[in-house]
Simulated assay, not measured.
Amino acid sequence: MGVSDYIAGLRKQIGHDLLMLPSASAVVVNGAGELLLQRRSDDGRWSIPSGVIDPGEQPAEAAVREVFEETGVRVTVERLAGVALHPTGYPNGDRCEYLNVWFLCRPEPGQEGAARVADDESLEVGWYAPGALPPLNDYERLRIETTLDGGETAWFARSGADVPMR
Rank of each mutant, 00 (worst) to 15 (best):
W155I: 00
E97C: 08
A114D: 11
P109H: 06
S47W: 07
G126S: 09
E140T: 14
F156H: 12
G89K: 12
V73I: 04
S4F: 11
V29Y: 00
S47P: 03
E112H: 11
L148D: 06
A84T: 03
P134L: 03
P91A: 10
A157C: 10
D17L: 07
L19I: 09
E140L: 05
G151L: 08
A81G: 06
S41D: 05
G2W: 01
L99I: 08
V101L: 11
E121Q: 11
T147H: 10
D54H: 15
E78F: 04
C105E: 04
C96S: 15
M165F: 12
L80F: 15
E124G: 02
L148K: 09
G131D: 14
N30S: 12
S122I: 04
Q58L: 15
G72F: 07
R11F: 08
P91H: 10
I144F: 03
D43N: 15
R65Q: 13
L104N: 04
R166S: 09
A132Q: 12
H16A: 13
Y98S: 02
D42P: 00
P55Q: 04
E140K: 04
P22C: 06
D119V: 00
G9T: 08
A157H: 06
L21I: 14
P49N: 06
Q58M: 15
S47E: 05
L36I: 08
G15W: 05
L35T: 02
R39W: 02
I144S: 00
P130R: 03
G72N: 01
P107C: 02
D138W: 13
L19P: 04
A8I: 01
Y90P: 08
H16D: 12
D94L: 15
R45M: 12
L142M: 12
G51H: 00
T146Y: 03
G151H: 09
W155V: 05
V73M: 03
V3F: 13
S159K: 10
V3M: 09
L21M: 10
A63M: 04
L37Q: 01
A60W: 13
A26K: 00
R11H: 10
G110Q: 07
W102Y: 09
R166P: 06
D43L: 00
H86W: 14
D5I: 11
V77F: 10
W102F: 10
N100Y: 08
F156I: 06
D54V: 12
G44T: 07
Y139H: 15
V29G: 02
G56F: 08
D17Q: 10
S41Y: 05
A115P: 06
L123N: 02
F103E: 01
I14T: 12
I53A: 01
A62H: 03
E121K: 02
M20R: 15
M20C: 12
G15K: 00
E112Q: 14
G93M: 08
V83Q: 09
